[in-house]
Design a protein around this nucleic acid. Sequence first.
DNA 1: GCAGAAATCTGACGATCAGTCAGATCGGGT
DNA 2: ACCCGATCTGACTGATCGTCAGATTTCTGC
Lengths: 216, 216
Amino acid sequence: MTGQVRTVDGRVAGRRGQATRQKLLDCLREMLDTSPYRDVKVIDVARMAGTSPATFYQYFQDVESAILEIANDMAKDGQRLKTLAEDQSWAGKGGYAAAEALADGFLEFWRDYEPILRVVDLASAEGDKRFYKVRQKILTAVTGSLTEAIENMQAKGKVGEEVHANAMAGTLVAMLAAVAGHQKGFESWNIKMKDVRPALSTLVYMGVTGKKPPTR
Amino acid sequence: MTGQVRTVDGRVAGRRGQATRQKLLDCLREMLDTSPYRDVKVIDVARMAGTSPATFYQYFQDVESAILEIANDMAKDGQRLKTLAEDQSWAGKGGYAAAEALADGFLEFWRDYEPILRVVDLASAEGDKRFYKVRQKILTAVTGSLTEAIENMQAKGKVGEEVHANAMAGTLVAMLAAVAGHQKGFESWNIKMKDVRPALSTLVYMGVTGKKPPTR
DNA sequence: GCAGAAATCTGACGATCAGTCAGATCGGGT
DNA sequence: ACCCGATCTGACTGATCGTCAGATTTCTGC
C-alpha cells in the first residue's frame, strides 16, 4: 500500500538504494537529536552517512521532505495511542486507570520521538499542510475516541450539554501533547513527572466524566 | 534598567542607530509572519529594511539574537497574563468567570504574537536557555498564581492532597498555551473557538477547585 | 558655515551550503 | 569476462553567511 520507494526522478529504488536512503534518514534523525532544526544541513547529514549531498538529493526533494518521511513512520507507530482511548469504560476507578494509561502513552510517545514531533509541531503551526496531516493522523483518532466517550456521558445525562464534546476532547489531547512535549521543561522547573502524571490523569478524567476521580 | 542599546562591538547606539535597529526588528517580525522560521534569511530582512546585511550584523549576533530581542519585548507585554491569575477568588460563578478571563487572555496573547511564540517554543524545547528564560518569564507568574490558588483550596480541604498543586498549575498553563498556539489548527479541524473557550475554562476551573463549574 | 571627530553604513571578500548534472563506478545477471 | 541498468559523486553555479576596512553621514565646537 505504501508503494515502492522511489527516487526524486521517479525511478524505483533497488536494494542498495533503499539501504542508502534509510541510512540518510537515520542520520538525519540523529542530527535532529543533537542540533537545532534551523542548523541541520544537508551536507552534514550526507557526510555522516558517508555519502555526498548529491546522493541525498537523489532520494529527497529537500530536508523537509526527508523529515516528513520520518514523521510518517512515526505516525504509523502513533496509532498505538489510539488503542489507549477507544472502547474504554470511563466510569469509576477503571476510568481513572484509563486516563492514567492515556497520559503515560503520550508521555512515552513524546519521549521516543521528541525531536521529530518538535519539527512537526512547528511546521504544522506554520501552515505546512503535509505536516499538519501527520499531526492529525496521530491525534485525530484519540480525539475521536474521547469525543465519543464524552458524548456517551452526555447521553446518559452525566455531563452537561454546555460543553462541546469535540472541543473538550481536542483540548484534552492538546494538553496531553503539550505536556508530553515539555517534559524536560517541567523537570528543570522542578516539577517532577511523577507529580504531573496524576494532574494530567485527573484532568482527563474530569474532562471526560465531568467529575472528580474516585479517591484511591 | 534595560541598559542602553549597544552594537555588537559594544558601542552605545545613537538616534540613527536605534532607528535602524528597530526597523530591522520590525522587518524581521514581519518576515516571521510570512515565511517559515527555517527560511528567514538575514539578507532578506536587510533588504526589506532597505539596508545591507553588514548593518544587521552590526546590531545582532545572528538571527536568533534578534528574535530573542523581540521575544523579550513580548515577555514584558506578557505580564498582563499574570494579573489575570493573581488574587482571584476561584469559588463559584466568579471563579468560573476568572477561568474564562484567563483562557481569553491566553487566546488573545497568542493571537498577537503567534509567530514569535512558535520560535520561542521550538528554541526552548531545543534546549536554548535564553529562549527558555523568556518562556518562563511569561508563564511562571501565571503558574505561581494558580499554584497558590490550588494550595489555598487544599488548605481548606476542598481539593485532595493527592494532586501536586504546582504540577497541576503547570499542566493547566501548558494546556492554555498549547490550545492558544493551535487556534488555527482547531478551526481547520472544524472545532470552533467559541466551543473551545468553555472547554478550556471548565478544565481550568476543575483543575483549580476540583469540582464541576456552577451551571450558568 | 565649516573642519574634524564620531557614528553609521556598505562594498567586497573568503567561506560555506544549496541544488544540479554529466559522467564515473558498482554489482548482478549471463 | 562482459554488459547494462542502478547508483554514486566531483565539480559547478548561485545564494547566503559573517567580517572588515574604508566610504558616507551626522554631530560637535567654534
